[in-house]
Design a protein around this nucleic acid. Structure first.
Lengths: 208, 208
DNA sequence: CGGCCGTTCAAACGATCGTTTGAGCATACG
DNA sequence: CGTATGCTCAAACGATCGTTTGAACGGCCG
């Protein structure tokens, strides 16, 4: 039988883990399958056997994390959206908190950097994949922002969300100047990042 | 004689122009010397002859634009820094306006995207080059921000500047959702970008 | 036991990368 | 005129890339 859908486990998981690490460190083009499979302790051909191609592997790295992440984002949003006492902070929390919790897992934190890279690289294939599969999430959040900021024109709101996205991508990826101090745990640092980010975003979104 | 410092002009300029375009479109690794030299209409070996290596070419692309850009930034800052009536808007103007003027030139606008890529790619060599050669510019602006925002702790200020940097990089690079509408000139669009950016940054920097 | 099938493996494929080479060209100068 | 010099050119170098191949392995079932 031709290799079917198979969740063998160990080899696929090892590849996905190593891919997350190396993609975060060197980018999608920068990380070669030889480095990747060596890091995972598997044979070079295993990637094409289990995933079909390098591009499919990249998509799978995203799918594995984003499916769960965005489900939790939408659930958090649904529990507050439309309520009269909901604040901007609540909506931003709903977006950022699931990403923060993902970072409990060490490799989950890495994924945030992979995600930031996807935005930075101008690869249209990848951007289209993200837009098609997860665009509805951003649309739902945008709708709730629009409800909470009725004084803003649609254009003005889009501008501000766009700028917030830039700050968020920058901060969550760890690309900026701010580095975690050695006496602060990874978990505490990301919590701090989220706090700064939320207050910053609220100010940027709601200024007159 | 071994090839000396030589400003022959045409060939070097054509290479730099094509490099700016292709680096902006496909990244530094993504743009090959063969594509680049073909676009420039010069021989493949010309890059290594005139610049020594691809890495040196990348540095030269930055140096050509950043030298002039940051000189104008520092001049604009010097003319307002320390004055009692100077506002946050003034300082942000001093930083953003020269970049905006650079975009008068079409290829100048491209350079903004090249710059954003440099921040996104995690290449330590390039980041170090930028930090060593142009770090003093960011330091001067940070000092002026500190003067205008005395109520902020040093740490708080750094966080906010970092987030502003993210938004700025995102917006100036054209990576975001916001696309120029066909009935708006490139010049007007970048002016609009700057206006949104400055108001957004002021709100993000100065919120209580 | 014997055959099957999912998986792993070393090896090779062709393509493309940055860089180097050495001949060829044109201009300037003794 | 003849030689040196700055530059361009086609061709090749070795390295590395993603992908493919076909043999070998190993557990499971008839």
């Amino acid at each position: 039988m031709v290799p079917p859908v198979n969740s063998s486990g160990s080899t696929k998981e090892r590849i996905l883990g190593a891919a997350e690490l190396l993609f975060a460190q060197r980018g999608f083009d920068g990380a070669s399958l030889r480095q990747l499979t060596a890091a995972a302790g598997v044979n070079l051909a295993a990637v094409n056997y289990h995933f079909g191609s390098k591009d499919k592997l990249v998509e799978e790295v995203f799918r594995r994390r984003l499916d769960a992440l965005n489900e939790r984002r939408l659930a958090a949003l649904a529990s507050i959206a439309g309520a009269p006492q909901t604040t901007l902070e609540d909506v931003l929390e709903a977006f950022i908190r699931p990403a923060l919790d993902l970072s409990h897992d060490d490799s989950g934190a890495l994924f945030m950097r992979v995600l930031a890279r996807a935005f930075a690289e101008h690869d249209d294939t990848l951007r289209q994949f993200l837009s098609v599969n997860y665009g509805h999430v951003m649309r739902q959040f945008t709708a709730e922002f629009a409800r909470l900021l009725p004084q803003l024109s649609k254009e003005e709101l889009y501008w501000r969300i766009d700028l917030v996205t830039g700050a968020l991508t920058h901060a969550m990826s760890g690309f900026g100047m701010i580095q975690r101090k050695s006496d602060v745990s990874e978990r505490a640092h990301r919590e701090q990042t989220a706090q700064h980010l939320i207050r910053f975003a609220v100010a940027g979104l709601s200024h007159p």
